[in-house]
Design a protein around this nucleic acid. Structure first.
Length: 293
DNA sequence: AGCTCTTCCTGAAAGC
DNA sequence: TGCTTTCAGGAAGAGC
């Protein structure tokens, strides 16, 4: 499923082939995952793709108007969320169409940007330039850019489980189930721990673990779970480096204990029962250390 | 505030 | 073998 590293991989791929090109027309299949299909089909033609960036798990294509565009005075953005099974890639218009392809953005040079999404959990929307700030403000901080102080501040006093907070896009943007579990394993923190009960050492390790895991995953071009492929249709390789996610019953890479699976924050969560002390055990360890001091 | 449940959707996997 | 059921999950909303 596409999370920050997968979306970053797609964005980097699109960046090498799309900027400077103009959308000449839009064709849509099923539209139930598109916020306003009529606006999309009306506003995009005759616009040039200026730049592409990632906002958490969202992809933003900044579009400038050519004179023939509708409402040329308005700057708009095409925003794409890949959901679970979304794919975005550029193909020649005469190439075969993958099943479940529901949006085609034809370019002036005979290629087209295609959006394919088996389950249609993804999202396509148009955001006007003057609304982009509000759109972005609804999302939390980029985990690769956040300072230690800001990281701590965002979790301080929160009585929710750390896993739930890592998945909450209003706190940090871009982390999903795989990278939450991988980061918690790396930082040796049990997913069910309450954020308010984590010490500064825990939080420091967690921030570094998130950075490290995401950077390594980006370098490996993401994890190919649920058929993820990049803009060129190539799978990523980080799934081979997973230490917790999807490894139920397999030995922990650190201590050899069997990785366990439990539903935490409504999601499958994988962790090492020895390296990542449960909330109860973490508390017992904490009290014992206090007593010995 | 934060938890659980439900909804959206399809294909893979498990169950019979 | 082949059909039926269950499950997975990002995000949002309801209800507790």
């Amino acid at each position: 499923m596409p999370e920050l590293p997968e979306v970053e991989t797609v964005v980097r791929g699109l960046r090498t082939v799309l900027p400077g090109h103009t959308i000449v027309s839009v064709r849509l299949g099923k539209t139930d995952f598109i916020e306003d299909p009529l606006a999309l089909a009306e506003l995009l033609p005759r616009r040039r793709i200026e730049k592409i960036e990632r906002l958490g798990k969202f992809i933003r294509l900044e579009l400038s108007a050519t004179p023939a565009a509708k409402n040329p005075e308005r700057e708009i953005n095409l925003i794409v969320h890949l959901g679970m099974t979304g794919r975005l890639g550029v193909r020649r218009a005469d190439e075969p169409i993958a099943p479940h392809t529901h949006a085609f953005f034809e370019l002036e040079d005979g290629r087209e940007l295609r959006y394919t999404d088996i389950r249609r959990f993804g999202q396509l929307l148009v955001v006007a330039g003057d609304r982009l700030g509000a759109f972005s403000d609804r999302l939390g901080k980029e985990p690769l850019e956040i300072s230690a102080a800001e990281f701590t501040k965002r979790l301080a006093g929160r009585r929710a489980r750390i896993k739930a907070l890592l998945l909450d896009q209003r706190i940090f943007r871009g982390i999903g189930n795989i990278y939450a579990d991988e980061s918690l394993w790396q930082a040796r923190i049990h997913p069910a721990r309450l954020a308010a009960r984590l010490g500064s050492a825990d939080l420091g390790r967690l921030r570094q673990a998130i950075r490290r895991v995401l950077q390594h995953a980006i370098a490996a071009r993401g994890s190919s779970i649920s058929n993820f492929v990049d803009a060129e249709g190539q799978p990523g390789e980080y799934q081979q480096r997973h230490r917790a996610y999807g490894r139920e019953g397999k030995p922990c890479f650190r201590c050899g204990s069997k990785i366990r699976r439990a539903v935490i924050a409504g999601r499958s969560s994988y962790f090492c029962p020895r390296c990542q002390a449960s909330p109860r055990r973490a508390r017992a360890i904490h009290l014992k250390q206090k007593k010995n001091r």
